[in-house]
């Protein structure tokens, strides 16, 4: 593998991580979806590049799925959903861009430190792909816990999944790559259809679910004490 080959793979994987970091501070949903589409596009390129480097034709299928499904179809559907749910004007107050970005950087540092050491005996490219993938995964999780809106929570999950595909594609000769990316596409399709059919706007949080908790008949004790419905805080710890 030439230096140039390696540099391109490195740049594409790094681009994925950069897109994840960019998502963290987006306040508007359309911008968020667009950056997700960009990340999926970069993923398609990265996987295709791996296919060329590893001479693994089945990876081209994975790349194609990433391009058509994740970079085009899903962002398009999400745009439609956002318009349908009338949340396109919504400005999300993220916990605070500063702290989130700082935690994001800390997670990237953690991922690099852990993975580069743990994978010290593997090939250079594979090691870096795994490290970038872990960073993307952790950033996706961070996004899922800091956002209130169901759509942005889902995008957090989708970006997390991009990291997984990157890791799997970067690990040489990984079997079931096509099956795994199809399985994930079905999962993602389920999620998007769920959003669409059930018009889920807010994520089902575990912190202030007061309105939703009322359904479950779990608030009676507190009601007896305070005279008004409230929920039991002990129930939901995640």
């Amino acid at each position: 593998m030439g230096v140039m080959d390696y540099n391109i793979a490195h740049m594409l994987a790094g681009g994925l991580m950069l897109a994840s970091l960019m998502m963290l501070y987006q306040k508007r949903l359309y911008a968020l979806i667009n950056i997700y589409a960009l990340q999926a596009f970069l993923l398609a390129l990265a996987v295709a590049w791996q296919a060329a480097l590893q001479h693994a034709p089945q990876l081209y299928i994975t790349a194609l799925i990433a391009l058509l499904f994740k970079a085009l179809l899903i962002p398009f559907a999400l745009h439609r959903i956002v318009a349908r749910l009338h949340i396109h004007r919504k400005i999300e107050t993220v916990i605070g861009t500063g702290p989130v970005m700082l935690s994001g950087m800390a997670l990237v540092a953690l991922a690099m430190d852990v993975m580069l050491k743990a994978a010290a005996h593997t090939a250079l490219l594979e090691r870096e792909d795994l490290a970038f993938a872990l960073a993307v995964l952790l950033l996706g999780l961070l996004m899922m816990v800091t956002r209130r809106n169901a759509v942005s929570q889902i995008i957090g999950f989708l970006s997390l999944e991009n990291g997984l595909i990157l890791a799997a594609a970067g690990t040489k000769g990984m079997p079931f790559m096509v099956e795994i990316s199809i399985a994930f596409s079905i999962l993602v399709a389920f999620i998007v259809i769920g959003l669409f059919l059930f018009r889920i706007r807010e994520r089902f949080d575990t912190v202030d679910l007061r309105a939703l908790d009322d359904f479950r008949g779990e608030w009676r004790l507190a009601e007896a004490f305070s005279g008004e419905p409230s929920y039991e805080s002990g129930d939901e710890i995640s």
């Binding site: 795994l130 995964l137 997984l164 890791a167 799997a168 690990t171 990984m174």
Partner: peptide
């Protein structure tokens, strides 16, 4: 899946 990938790696 990430765990599975690492086992394979």
């Amino acid at each position: 899946l990430f765990g599975t990938t690492l086992v394979y790696a």
